[in-house]
Simulated assay, not measured.
Amino acid sequence: MTKVLIVDDAAFIRSHLKLLLESNGFEVVGEAENGKEALGKIQELRPDIVTLDITMPEMDGIECMLEINKMDYSPVVIMISALGQELAVQKAIMNGAKGFIVKPYKSEAVIKNLNKFRI
């Protein structure tokens, strides 16, 4: 089963994504409120996919993406953010994100994007 780590500072988004992903056959192995917390959980939990918000306290999604690139273990990263501007999308993709989903998202769009990387 494909393991997913959900990273978002909004608890209701984490909760909704967890229900959505689990009901579609993904295993949510953990959640994080910011990029700093996510880095530790990536090392510990070794998820296959990380959903990563861009705007978060302590460490944002782009900074987190740069740190993930330095790790010996590198999961697939899908950005999920309200920042739908072209610049944010380009920056995320240039730094290694494999996909970008704009909030508010449609459940089908999330599943379609993550299914591309299902193990």
Score class of each variant (00 low, 15 high):
I111G: 06
V29T: 12
L87H: 11
N115Q: 12
I119A: 13
V110Y: 04
D48G: 11
L21T: 13
M65I: 08
M1D: 05
L20V: 12
R14Q: 06
I62T: 07
K112G: 08
I93G: 03
P104E: 06
K70L: 09
N34D: 15
V110M: 06
D48N: 15
P47C: 09
N115F: 02
A32T: 08
L39H: 09
E27M: 06
F117Y: 15
A97L: 04
K106A: 14
P75Y: 06
C64A: 15
K91C: 05
S81R: 02
M71W: 03
E67C: 08
E63S: 14
E58Y: 07
G84M: 05
E37A: 14
I62F: 03
T55K: 10
A88K: 02
E67G: 10
V7E: 04
G40S: 14
I111Y: 03
R118V: 09
S74Q: 15
V110N: 04
E63A: 13
E67M: 10
K106I: 13
Q43G: 11
G25M: 03
M56R: 09
L5S: 07
P47I: 06
S15M: 12
N24H: 15
A109I: 06
V28G: 03
L87E: 15
M79P: 09
A97R: 01
V50F: 02
M59K: 14
K98S: 15
